[in-house]
Amino acid sequence: MAQSQVPIPEHKLLESPNSRTIEIFDWSITASTNPISNASECDSLQATLGFPLPEMTFGNNLLTLEHKSSSWKYSFTTEGALKAVKNGELGPGDGGVKTVPTKPYDWTYTTTYPGGLEPSDSEKPSGEEKPVESKWIAADPEDPSQAIPMAELTRPDPILFYAEIPLFEDELHDNGSSALLVRIRVMPGCLFILARFTLRVDNVLFRQFDTRIYHSFSSSPPLIVRETSGWEAPYDRVKRLLPMRDDLTPLTDPSFITKALTEMPPRLSQGEGGKTGWRALGTRREITKLAS
């Protein structure tokens, strides 16, 4: 592949069997990928959450970004993602997929978790200051520096650091699939994260929730752009797009689902969706500025 002539900034890679770190500019970024949680870890997480865990819970996986000079620390954790799953009776906007009501929690594990500050506010000892400038504010739609530059991200610059971190997966008792996968790539000029939740409920609907995080190393003061998007479509609407009618395998492929949902007219996939009234449909963009 022809790579553009981009100077490679100084950086350091640290590696251990289950964890990798890159130190670049003012950042330290760590990805940990481990086996699924064992029985005792599952028991204690289940006790914390109060509902049955996904079949595959990667409780020890995480992605952490640390900006050294501002001590801004942002993470994607399995516990954080599952805490954002509705526990209790589902109400309007929760996008509940109807079945016989039993245990009151969202059995589809739908999460709109966009990552979070570390340690979270509730975990902090009282009296401790919040990290500076941790607030997300709506991005200015007119300001291109507050958007995610797709042209830059499509450019085949060298990837200095790459990781895929599954946080949880469940096959909904073979009634579909629910999964949250976080990916990161660090390029000479920027870092980019995509955390994607994908849900298939057979014969009912498809749902996707994306969180994208972008930071240009040259922004000053350091600026983080965060874009979240929710999509939905009825199952049959996506099934119609299969290349071969009898082969349903593409319906288990998140990239096929993404393509189907994002290429549909937005009034469908981000408007009426799967007719569940899910509040997360649509796209919003926010920014946060860090102290340099």
């Binding site: 595959m56 593409p250 288990t252 990239s255």
Partner: peptide, 18 residues
């Protein structure tokens, strides 16, 4: 046989995974 998981982690290589 249930192999959807093999696929879902490598979703970007659609058409190749099989």
């Amino acid at each position: 046989f249930k192999q959807s998981r093999v696929i879902s982690g490598i979703d970007f290589r659609a058409g190749d995974y099989v």
